[in-house]
Computed example of a mutant assay.
Amino acid sequence: MTRLHRDASAPVVAVRGVRKTYRLGAHTVPALQGVDLAVLAGEMVALTGPSGSGKSTLLNLCGLIDVPDAGEVRLQGQPVHLLDETSRTLLRRDGLGFVFQSFNLVPVMTVTDNVDYPLFLAGVPAAERRRRVAEALERVGLAEHAAHRPDALSGGQRQRVAIARALIKRPALVIADEPTASLDSHTADQVLDLMRERCHAEGAAFVIATHDDRLTRRCDRIVRLLDGEITGAEQPAQEPQRSAA
């Protein structure tokens, strides 16, 4: 199975009773201990907690980068935790988007080519790719930078390119790992507003690992982890009204 048959009634991603341990030398480290989580379409969920709490492991399971030792992972109602590595890779390529702290743009490619690349890999016809890329860059406010390379852009602009690239495939799920950690406050505010707008407009589910309070205040739900367990889930506090100046 390399493509999902969408079940509109199911969460976009759901993990049930997942456990994961890692070996460090002679030691076994429990990263996740029976975690349950479900994320709906159009929902933006922040995973928070100290380093070593299990955020990255849970993110990797949701993003099909890793598999649990026990429990199950479902995407749009379909079990995916038992798929082989090739099938998981194809599902990641065709159905998931990723946004990283370090942007992960290809430096020798233009903005257009970076955003186009996932569509090229998926075999989308050239004319449709051009149309979709132009629309995506317009939505993130970078149409005038289409011919630039990443090193000509600011950090916030690079993250906007990364968001456009993540959403170009119209994925059901976007995985984001500390997407604002390298941005200043003003730039982070702009990027976060864009992520929230696109999450709701595209109907994608966002799962975001973060230490950034600016980000958690814009999410629909905050899930807190400690020592591999979920210790609580809550709605964020009301975002303070920012001055228009």
Rank of each mutant, 00 (worst) to 15 (best):
L47P: 02
S51W: 11
S51M: 12
G52V: 06
G52W: 05
S53L: 05
S53P: 04
G54F: 06
G54H: 09
G54V: 08
S56L: 14
T57N: 11
L58V: 07
L61T: 05
L61V: 05
C62F: 10
L64D: 02
I65F: 12
I65E: 14
I65M: 15
D66F: 04
V67M: 04
D69N: 13
G71K: 10
E72F: 00
V73W: 10
V73S: 08
Q76G: 11
G77T: 03
V80T: 09
V80A: 09
H81W: 01
L83V: 04
D84H: 00
E85C: 05
R88G: 00
R88S: 05
T89I: 00
T89E: 12
L90G: 01
L90R: 12
L91D: 01
L91W: 01
R92P: 05
R92D: 06
R92G: 04
R93K: 14
G95V: 00
G97M: 03
F98Y: 14
F98N: 02
V99N: 08
F100G: 03
Q101S: 10
Q101M: 09
S102W: 03
S102N: 15
S102I: 06
F103I: 04
F103P: 05
N104L: 12
N104P: 00
V106H: 01
M109D: 08
T110D: 09
V111N: 11
V111D: 11
D113H: 14
D113Y: 06
N114F: 03
V115K: 08
V115L: 03
D116R: 15
Y117S: 12
Y117M: 15
Y117V: 08
P118D: 07
P118N: 10
P118K: 11
F120H: 10
F120P: 00
G123A: 13
A126C: 00
A127W: 01
R129E: 05
R130V: 03
A134Q: 08
E138D: 15
G141Y: 06
G141D: 11
L142K: 06
L142N: 05
A143I: 07
A143D: 02
A143Y: 01
H145A: 15
H145N: 09
A146Y: 02
A147D: 15
A147M: 12
A147Q: 15
R149C: 13
P150T: 10
P150L: 13
P150C: 09
D151M: 11
L153T: 14
S154D: 07
G155M: 14
R158E: 12
R158L: 04
R160G: 01
V161G: 06
I163P: 01
I163F: 03
A164C: 13
R165L: 13
A166Q: 05
A166K: 03
A166P: 10
L167C: 13
K169N: 14
K169T: 14
A172G: 12
A172H: 13
A172P: 00
L173Q: 06
I175P: 03
A176K: 07
D177V: 11
D177Y: 08
D177K: 09
E178H: 13
P179K: 07
P179G: 11
T180G: 13
D184T: 07
